[in-house]
Design a protein around this nucleic acid. Structure first.
Lengths: 259, 259
DNA sequence: TGTGGTCTACTGGCCAGACCAGTACGTTAT
DNA sequence: ATAACGTACTGGTCTGGCCAGTAGACCACA
């Protein structure tokens, strides 16, 4: 005979659950407004601090947006990958999860995303991928401006990120899209705070050209509908991208995902 | 010249950020205790409702556990995949994300997890996988008890879930592990509420034996270190598992991930 | 030597009431 | 028509308070 611990549900949790259930079951849609806090304390028979705590939780988890003074009440928001990014970031900074695992996970996701993108026959999505790849080559060619290496590096990261984002979007899987986005952003955050990205100008330029070339070949494989080739190319590209930033031991973990 | 919108950060968000930063930067570890609320309102120069709102958010996101009356204050918790499950579940129930996408994502993750598990040379982890596979065959053989189909179905799901969980653990990637766990649980939740799982006894028995057999062959491929074979077997197994539960159109989306 | 009970000084959970800054929206002045 | 203004709300925050629950020390008892 097994007993289970007596469940003590806080009153604010009940409110959160009820509202989340309302969204889950289709009674509340993004864009809808919730009643005001003073109204909610009546319907739930609790005090204002309690409903406020519930609203704060919903606000912090991206379910709802509140603005002081708005008589229409809190607004139900659509889902955002950012909601996944928070806990992901937390996990990566927890003891035991390393940056190498993050990169391995990214390699894995991008590979599968490229495969699915190649398998899908969505021409407009593929055109968007090609456009982002062109952005990259453009940036590589006009690198001789009056910009500092830090500025170029920042723009490089953004354009490259957009390219991968387009691929994920073309995969047609929102979970893959959101997770990949979250991992991507978590990784750039780590990179940004890890070191000032003080790369030498020539090295940065070389990286940029290399990435632009890689993006072009990957785009071609996706357009051709070559699923296996797209997957392999994508993983190889990311491997190349991180090759000289990781220790040999860390690189070892990436190898099996490429073959 | 670009301006950025003046960031209005609520005071509770500042507290949450500071505490999360403390965890992120290693000043706070799981098991540590936070000061009491009355102490916190001094250190942050805010009132108690404000620090309470912050604590509620941290509590709701699984960062912290609070118990009334505990003089030691709130406890910092270790990370849990459940923290990912929440937003994942929300996304799947949002309009636009289908169950088919969830299954596609699962197929993708399990395939890569099996590949990595085969690549890793962690004998104890592989033994744990084998043990879970044996649990499955055991269940398949002693199916003739006095149990109802609902009970068997429940136990089936649990044992099978443990098997996959062992594989994910063997992959050595905590992100893959947590994400896979979250997707798995989200999927069982959907399945449970979708229909009462009222499968006929003989059909259920056949499914069970099929899964047991599949698990055995997958385990063998992982033990042999056959990365490509493990990936292929895992994806085939999951495809087979969902074959007669999805529409042809939905199955089509899974096909490219198998080859 | 433990075992269970009691006491105490806290804790967090929740509430009532209040003030302020901000917002939407109708009204007025131009 | 348009711009400025009022008003009647909103959420954000604070003060102060009561209650139930917990840990930990103490104590009586077997």
């Amino acid at each position: 005979m097994q007993f289970e611990p007596v469940k003590k549900l806080n009153s604010y949790e009940m409110i959160v659950d009820q509202i989340e259930a309302g969204i889950r079951e289709g009674r509340l849609h993004p864009g809808d407004r919730l009643p005001g806090e003073r109204k909610l304390m009546e319907t739930f028979s609790v005090s204002r601090p309690t409903v406020r705590e519930a609203m704060r939780v919903l606000h912090a988890t991206g379910v709802v947006n509140t603005r002081a003074g708005d008589p229409r009440g809190a607004e139900v928001l659509p889902f955002t990958p950012q909601a996944l990014e928070r806990p992901l970031a937390r996990m990566t900074h927890q003891e035991g999860t390393t940056r190498a695992e993050l990169i391995q996970f990214r390699l894995l996701l991008e590979g599968q995303a490229s495969l699915l993108a190649a398998a899908a026959d969505d021409d407009s999505a593929k055109r968007r991928i090609a456009a982002r790849a062109l952005d990259l080559t453009d940036l590589a060619e006009r690198t001789g401006g009056a910009k500092s290496t830090a500025e170029i590096s920042e723009e490089f990261g953004e354009v490259l990120s957009n390219f991968h984002s387009a691929i994920r979007a073309a995969s047609g899987n929102q979970l893959l899209q959101a997770t990949g986005q979250a991992v991507d952003e978590a990784l750039t955050t780590v990179a940004r705070q890890r070191l000032g990205e003080e790369t030498e100008a020539p090295a940065l330029e070389a990286r940029l050209r290399c990435s632009a070339q890689d993006a072009a070949t990957l785009t071609e494989r996706i357009r051709a509908g070559d699923t296996a080739g797209a997957r392999r190319t994508a993983t190889e590209n990311i491997y190349r991208f991180y090759k000289d930033r990781l220790s040999p031991h860390e690189l070892e973990a990436l190898a099996p995902l490429i073959g």
